[in-house]
């Protein structure tokens, strides 16, 4: 069972502000979904290798060459808050 406290913890980890109404809704829905996920526990996967990569690709490299940079104005064009050529953010602590 996942509690409202768990949901708050997960929301903090994921940096999502949620309202008390959302907290209740997500608690219920996540419990339903997690219960559904329980079905997987029926399977014995003791000797099964996990699939993290669906194709057997390996050693995909690029050469160490410098390419084009974004022009400054393009790099900063979508910036919600800017100071000179920096991205501006609220204080850290």
């Amino acid at each position: 069972m996942i509690t409202e406290k768990d949901v708050d913890h997960v929301a903090l980890l994921a940096r999502l502000e949620i309202t008390s109404k959302e907290r209740e809704m997500y608690t219920n829905q996540l419990n339903d979904i997690l219960e559904y996920f329980q079905s997987l526990q029926r399977l014995d996967t003791e000797n099964v290798q996990p699939t993290a990569y669906v194709l057997p690709l390996k050693n995909v490299y690029r050469e160490d060459q410098v390419g084009d940079h974004l022009p400054l104005e393009e790099a900063l064009a979508n910036c919600p808050d800017r100071e000179e050529n920096y991205f501006k953010v609220p204080k850290i602590v």
Binding site: R15, E17, P80, V89, P90
Partner: peptide, 22 residues
Amino acid sequence: VRYGFRAFEAGDVIDMFMKTRG
């Protein structure tokens, strides 16, 4: 921070992240 919507009423940066994403 770099693009997209931002909630501007936030206090510190964690608060900004949480409100923006929320």
